[in-house]
């Protein structure tokens, strides 16, 4: 199932300006990641589409991040990464 969100042409500087190597501080990187991704949490959590795979492809492409950076760095609650309230 295709992703209804077009992640190809989005502005990723919200992440790339704050999450930088070589240290990739978790508070900055995970905060930036959530700021970018939380508006699309419903689409990303739907694992029957390609949204999360596509989004991470572009995040890693534009940020030149090592594979698995965010999944290894970011932990909140047992349910997942908590998004700020709207």
């Amino acid at each position: 199932k295709p992703c209804p969100v077009d992640f190809e042409f989005m502005n990723y500087t919200i992440i790339t300006s704050r999450c930088k190597g070589p240290r990739y501080p978790a508070n900055l990187c995970c905060g930036a990641f959530k700021d970018f991704a939380c508006p699309y949490n419903d689409e990303l959590n739907d694992l029957s589409n390609e949204c999360s795979s596509t989004m991470f492809s572009y995040i890693n492409l534009y940020g030149n991040y090592p594979p698995g950076l965010f999944s290894s760095l970011c932990r909140d609650d047992k349910i997942g990464l908590i998004c700020p309230a709207l």
Binding site: C38, L47, C74, D77, C83
Partner: peptide
Amino acid sequence: SNQRYISYGALSKNNVPCSR
């Protein structure tokens, strides 16, 4: 209230560049 979150299932897609 509805707490929004990014599931670890979605986050795990960061691990696999070429999932199949």
